[in-house]
């Protein structure tokens, strides 16, 4: 299996994120699992408390990560001067990386202390992260170019047709199989209501899984070689996903628009709270290493 540079990039960031998260969790497990009123007496308290050498550091670094992740992505996305600076989807991945690891570090900074009014600051951050994941999901439901730019409805249809042609021409599939594929990858152009977009997505996903199962069993019985069969199944899968995305395209595009409305305010809110928090902290004399 050949790993593309893009995949390597993703894997690297994922590994960094996982390793840092796991190491901190492992190191601080005894402390973080203590009841709140017992933590002060832990030997790790001095290091891992929110104002501790490490704990405070997690907060500062995590906050900076989020700040950089948000600001850099926004600049790349919105300032024309930087529109050609790297692929937008890579910036998004980097944005996701920083805005995932950052909150994780902030999470360690809070030492999982969610109780009290101060928890709202954390939950607002969590809301940004969760909304980010939802956004990422919606983002993936909208077909894009290799650079991450949105494809138009026509472009998507062309892709679908291309896939059908490749199946028909390259693999010498029987007419019955081809009919079956057409049947399962039928694009319903009827507009889906925004409220039923998610349920429709789930319904379609389940139907397509069943369909793929059927096609697989039929292909097994056919005379197609094993190697070809794998490639055929991959193409059919792509075709089915694409078919689903086409069906939900308009709904997802609308949903994505609304998502921005939620995601960004959470981010701004979190930023504001962070600034207040940092301000209060500095005012009271907690300056970490500075």
């Amino acid at each position: 299996m050949i790993i593309t540079l893009n995949q390597l990039y993703k894997i690297s960031l994922f590994l960094i994120l996982s390793v840092i998260s796991v190491i901190i969790l492992y190191f601080g497990w005894d402390y973080y699992t203590l009841p709140l009123n017992k933590r002060f007496f832990s030997e790790l308290h001095t290091l891992l408390k929110p104002s501790g050498a490490l704990g405070h550091g997690f907060g500062i670094i995590g906050s900076l990560m989020m700040l950089v992740g948000v600001v850099s992505y926004m600049i790349r996305k919105r300032v024309k001067r930087f529109s050609r600076l790297g692929a937008l989807k890579n910036w998004l991945i980097f944005h996701i990386f920083l805005c995932t690891l950052g909150p994780i570090l902030v999470l360690y900074h809070t030492a999982f202390k969610f109780g009290g009014l101060v928890s709202i600051s954390f939950w607002s951050m969590a809301a940004v992260v969760v909304s980010g994941f939802i956004g990422r999901f919606i983002y993936l439901q909208i077909p894009r170019t290799i650079e991450g730019n949105e494809l138009s409805f026509n472009d998507v249809n062309k892709l679908n047709i291309n896939l059908t042609q490749r199946l028909r021409e390259n693999y010498n599939l029987s007419e019955s199989i081809l009919l079956m594929i057409d049947e399962f990858s039928f694009v319903d152009l009827e507009e889906i209501k925004l409220s039923s977009a998610i349920s429709s997505f789930i319904k379609k996903t389940i139907e397509q899984r069943k369909a793929l199962k059927k096609i697989k069993s039929v292909l097994k019985k056919s005379e197609i070689s094993k190697e070809n069969r794998k490639e055929v199944i991959r193409l059919i899968k792509s075709k089915l996903v694409l078919t689903r995305k086409i069906s939900l395209l308009k709904s997802m595009q609308k949903l994505f628009g609304y998502w921005h409305v939620a995601h960004l305010p959470f981010a701004i809110l979190m930023l504001l709270i962070m600034l207040v928090h940092v301000g209060v902290t500095i005012v009271f004399g907690y300056r970490w290493v500075f």
């Binding site: 009290g116 101060v118 709202i120 600051s121 607002s124 504001l272 709270i273 209060v280």
Partner: peptide
Amino acid sequence: ISLFAQISPGE
């Protein structure tokens, strides 16, 4: 709410 919440780190 959050502005106020940030002031006290706990009871």
